[in-house]
């Protein structure tokens, strides 16, 4: 079992829900990466999704896109992020998940990426512009490095696809909660409950909900029918504003004590 899956299952076994914040590496400068990751770790998050900026982030909404533009303007690259992470990997106790578009990995070299990412503490990878059908391009190298390749399941995925995606997904299943791109939303479709139940029938791999989750009540609501949540835009905004109170509230909402 992958280290990532294990980390999530141990959280849910204790009655809590997994909480995975997304941060944009290099937003505010790469020297912010170490203190941010260590502080999130201290707050008790389950894993951290580390976003790699890209020039053409088609799956991202305005908040993350702008954070990516700021990171690019700071000269952030995949190589620099991996180097920075490797520099303090011995202090990281939770799994890191890299979220990167495919082309930076191809330019870096797939084998070299898998090797260097592992050194950097990366235990899972999400590639939003690489559906399952195209994953052969990176999967063997990641498998060798024992890095989980996480599949996204969308509301538009057909039942047949959902079954294939959930069975193929490693670490966890990233269940997209809206039709669209990343970014905070105030409401969600009513039928999500059934959608999540269907996803979970095919596998014991934990299902995490993501896209649009921005408030403690979203964390609690989604927590009631899946293993946890990924929070992106709200975290990115809060970090940019130095607003750690909001982040603490979100993390707290994933704990068993908050549900009671």
């Amino acid at each position: 079992m992958s280290q990532l899956k294990q980390a999530i299952l141990s959280v849910t076994a204790a009655g809590d829900k997994a909480f995975v914040p997304y941060i944009m590496a290099g937003d505010g400068g790469l020297d912010k990466l170490q203190p941010t990751i260590l502080k999130l770790q201290e707050l008790g998050v389950t894993a951290i999704e580390v976003g790699i900026p890209f020039t053409d982030p088609v799956a991202d909404g305005p908040t993350i896109e702008r954070a990516g533009e700021r990171a690019l303007a700071n000269g952030t690259t995949l190589r620099k992020v991996l180097e920075t992470l490797t520099g303090f990997a011995d202090q990281i106790t939770i799994p890191l998940v890299a979220m990167t578009y495919l082309n930076p990995i191809l330019a870096y070299g797939v084998e070299k990426f898998a090797h260097d990412a592992k050194q950097a503490g990366i235990r899972g990878v999400i590639i939003p512009d690489m559906p399952l059908e195209e994953s052969g391009i990176v999967h063997p190298a990641l498998k060798n490095a024992e890095i989980a390749l996480i599949q996204l399941v969308s509301l538009t995925s057909t039942p047949e696809r959902i079954e294939r995606l959930t069975k193929a997904s490693e670490g966890f299943i990233y269940a997209v909660t809206v039709n669209g791109i990343t970014g905070a939303r105030s409401s969600f479709a009513g039928s999500l409950d059934d959608h999540f139940k269907r996803i979970q029938t095919y596998t014991d791999t934990p299902v995490l909900a993501g896209f649009g989750i921005s408030a403690p009540e979203h964390v609690k609501n989604f927590g009631s029918f899946c293993s946890g949540v990924i929070v992106g835009s709200k975290i990115v905004d809060s970090l940019a504003n130095g607003d750690w109170d909001i982040i603490e509230e979100l993390v707290k909402a994933s704990k068993a004590s908050a549900v009671k």
Partner: peptide, 12 residues
């Protein structure tokens, strides 16, 4: 070629 797109587009 290929289909390097987000999962949400695959069904369409």
């Amino acid at each position: 070629g290929g289909q390097f797109v987000p999962e949400t587009l695959m069904t369409a």
